[in-house]
Amino acid sequence: MQVLQVQLEVGPDPAEVGRARRWARSRLAGSGIAADEPVAETLILLISELVTNAVVHTGCPAVLRMLLPGVPASEPGTVRVEVADRSARPPRQRHAERDETNGRGLELVDGLADRWGWQHEGSGKRIWCEVDRCEAPPPARGAAFRHPAHEGVALGVH
């Protein structure tokens, strides 16, 4: 199976996170992963968290890279997301208290991704995660569908 690799340079500005999400949505759609697929929603959330961490915690530019399964897009495959930055400081997973508004990024990554990790890259690092895109029968008419990776994860909108 072919793999398509795309990347985006992200500036050290929190506003870049929204640009990265829009860019990722368009690349996913271009690879045949529909915006309403649960895997697309999961990937956008993962990208948002990893890019936010890179921009906010390092203050450095970063590179967002996606490795997408090739055509036909209807077949199962793995989507890999990588964010490389210039900070050698390792990522640190926190366990935020209930009333804290920050500190859950890597917990979300750990809960939503099938695999994730990090490695040193040059003078910086690369954090990566992978999501397996499985074939699933469409939900029954009128039934709500919930991606298994979202079970047990509560997200709030403020």
Rank of each mutant, 00 (worst) to 15 (best):
Q2D: 15
Q2S: 15
V3G: 02
V3L: 07
L4V: 15
L4E: 14
Q5I: 11
Q5A: 15
V6N: 04
V6F: 03
V6M: 07
V6P: 06
V6I: 09
Q7D: 07
Q7K: 05
Q7M: 07
V10I: 13
G11R: 12
P12K: 15
D13P: 03
P14D: 07
P14A: 13
P14G: 06
A15Q: 07
V17C: 11
V17Q: 06
G18Q: 07
G18C: 05
R19D: 12
R21P: 04
R21F: 13
R22L: 05
R22E: 11
A24R: 05
R25I: 00
S26K: 12
S26H: 14
R27Y: 10
R27I: 01
L28W: 13
A29G: 00
G30D: 02
S31L: 06
S31Y: 04
G32A: 07
G32Q: 03
G32L: 04
I33Y: 12
I33M: 13
I33D: 11
A34S: 11
A34G: 04
A34L: 11
A35C: 05
A35K: 08
D36R: 07
D36H: 14
E37D: 14
V39N: 06
E41G: 12
T42E: 06
L45P: 00
L45W: 07
L45V: 08
I47H: 02
I47Y: 13
S48K: 13
S48G: 12
E49R: 07
L50Y: 04
L50H: 10
V51D: 05
T52Q: 02
N53T: 06
A54C: 05
V55K: 02
V55P: 01
V55H: 09
V55Y: 03
V56T: 02
V56L: 10
V56R: 14
H57D: 01
C60P: 03
C60T: 14
P61A: 08
P61D: 11
P61C: 07
A62L: 02
V63D: 04
L64D: 08
L64S: 08
M66A: 06
M66S: 03
M66W: 14
L67A: 13
L67Y: 01
L67F: 10
L67I: 06
L67T: 11
L67P: 01
L68Q: 03
P69F: 00
G70Y: 04
G70F: 09
P72C: 05
S74Y: 12
S74E: 13
E75D: 11
E75P: 00
E75Q: 10
P76S: 05
P76I: 00
G77I: 08
G77T: 09
G77E: 03
V79K: 15
V79R: 12
V79H: 12
E82M: 13
V83G: 06
V83E: 04
V83Q: 06
V83W: 01
V83P: 00
R86H: 10
R86I: 12
R86P: 15
S87W: 04
